[in-house]
């Protein structure tokens, strides 16, 4: 053993010195470099994982939103079409109604006009008849120069008038 120690110059002081050397390195490198570095690495990988997850979630939400948007759009389009259709129908209905009314009014006006014309005509005829009766009486008076009694007179007038018709 002594020979061994002699050959390799094993010295416990040097041994301890080298142990201290290594311990210093171990402490410094671990405490100031390796530990924070590995913490940074772990944090980063965690962050990346979270980001990826978030990205996936956002994409999923985006797809959902796109879908609802499309659905809403479709619905709106349908609604709009419905409204347009309804409006067209309403317009058609109103139009035909108006036409009907107008027709009716026109017919009314025509009817009224006809009636007025008829009544006017009747009135005119009655007036004319009256006037003609008077004229006839006067004429007959003039012609006959004598006045028949009222009864005969009227009968005669009546006769004349009816014959004039």
């Amino acid at each position: 053993m002594d020979e061994f120690i002699q050959t390799f110059h094993v010295d416990w002081k040097l041994l301890v010195a080298q142990l201290i050397n290594f311990s210093v390195v171990l402490f410094v490198v671990w405490r100031f470099a390796l530990k924070p570095l590995m913490k940074t690495m772990a944090d980063r990988s965690q962050k990346i994982e979270k980001s990826l997850e978030d990205a996936k979630r956002i994409e999923r939400e985006l797809t959902g939103a796109e879908k609802t948007r499309e659905e809403k759009l479709l619905q709106a389009r349908k609604d709009a079409q419905d409204i347009i259709d309804g409006a067209a129908k309403e317009a058609e209905r109103i139009k035909s109604e108006k036409i009907d009314e107008t027709k009716r009014e026109a017919a009314d006006v025509v009817e009224k006009a006809k009636m007025q014309i008829a009544s006017e005509k009747e009135k005119m005829v009655a007036e004319a008849r009256k006037e003609v009766g008077g004229l006839v009486i006067a004429a007959t008076e003039k012609i006959v120069r004598k006045k028949l009694d009222d009864k005969a007179d009227h009968a005669l007038v009546e006769e004349v008038v009816t014959s004039m018709k």
Partner: peptide
């Protein structure tokens, strides 16, 4: 140096 390797 054998001291170093022995220490390690």
């Amino acid at each position: 140096d054998f001291n170093t390797t022995l220490a390690l």
